[in-house]
């Protein structure tokens, strides 16, 4: 009796954390069949590339839990990137102040999204489609056709330091992932979010303030996206108004869906989201090493998210 019970538990654990096992499989196949994949340099490279996608995936997860979506994250990245450049180079503010202001810009963008979704009750995809256009237009206006290269070292140290010879950005990502895990699984706010995603009507009757919670998720997502933008801007050492864009949003959504987050909301698994982001970066690494057509990456990502969506939809048919 107890043997059968433990077998069921193992199976459930695997099923619930499937993306982590997929990641392990991907890494194993890579190490076995793809030359240079298993090298320390390559792993370091993947980690360096994954920090921003992990954080953006977690930001997207916040929004997906409540059954919404944010198609404007890539354009928030653009706006924050060029604002960052202006603040650092033209206004010459101190790095700490620049980071704070950039996070505030991200929060403001998220707040606009949140307001339009909660107060006006417009479907989130059309809201974020519209605000995305507005933000990219704003970024271009603000930039006045200039990009800012060669950011000062004092500012770049924020993301360029390498404690224990690992990029500091991955530590940021792990810390943020841990904080988000705590919030989502151990706090009242997190429980309310998951309840809202599973059954909005019941949650409202139970007294959860849906509008306030959804608004806060959009603000948090905007803030995290702004953080991503700072990391990305420092990594490419160029503040430009077309950093990010629609590819960024698509990668974030893909990573979240591959990581098991359902688009209908309610289910979330933070380690799996991190695994989802790492999986897509592994795929990118494969394509780079094997010298395949780089544009295959987007097509493969699309097929991967399609497969994950179909699996998710079939699983949720009963809902």
């Amino acid at each position: 009796m107890s043997a059968r019970k433990s077998k069921n538990t193992v199976l459930t654990v695997v099923k619930q954390n499937a993306p982590i096992f997929y990641l392990v499989i991907f890494v194993l196949i890579g190490c076995l069949f793809i030359p240079n994949f298993g090298s320390r340099a390559n792993f370091l490279n993947i980690l360096r590339q994954s920090a921003a996608p992990i954080i953006s995936c977690i930001a997207m997860t916040f929004i997906l839990i409540t059954g919404n979506i944010d198609l404007s994250t890539g354009y928030i990245v653009s706006l924050v990137s060029i604002s960052c450049g202006i603040m650092v180079k033209t206004l010459e503010l101190s790095p700490g102040l620049v980071i704070l202001l950039c996070l505030l810009i991200g929060c403001a963008a998220g707040a606009v999204n949140g307001l339009l979704v909660t107060v006006f009750q417009i479907p989130s995809f059309i809201v974020t489609l519209g605000t995305g256009m507005i933000l990219t237009g704003l970024a271009q206006l603000v930039s006045q056709n200039t990009s800012y290269h060669d950011l000062p070292d004092g500012f770049r140290a924020f993301a360029k330091a390498e404690p224990f010879s690992l990029p500091i950005t991955i530590f940021y990502a792990i810390i943020i992932a841990f904080i988000v895990w705590v919030v989502l699984h151990k706090s009242v706010f997190g429980r309310e979010l998951r309840a809202l995603g599973l059954n909005a009507q019941a949650s409202r009757i139970a007294g959860i303030n849906e509008k306030k919670s959804v608004f806060i998720t959009f603000v948090i997502s905007g803030c995290l996206t702004a953080f991503c933008s700072i990391l990305m801007t420092i990594r490419v050492n160029c503040a430009q108004p077309d950093l990010g864009g629609s590819n960024f949003s698509f990668e974030a959504i893909t990573a979240a869906v591959i990581g098991g987050t359902s688009l209908l909301g309610g289910q979330v698994n933070v380690p799996c989201c991190v695994a989802g982001a790492l999986i897509i970066k592994c795929i990118e690494s494969w394509i780079n090493i094997l010298n395949l057509n780089y544009y295959l990456y987007q097509a493969i990502l699309g097929i991967a998210i399609l497969v994950a969506l179909v699996a998710d939809a079939l699983k949720n048919r009963a809902r």
Binding site: G130, M133, G137, L138, Q140, L141
Partner: peptide, 8 residues
Amino acid sequence: YVQNLLLG
């Protein structure tokens, strides 16, 4: 881009 802003 400004047109996109207005359109959005």
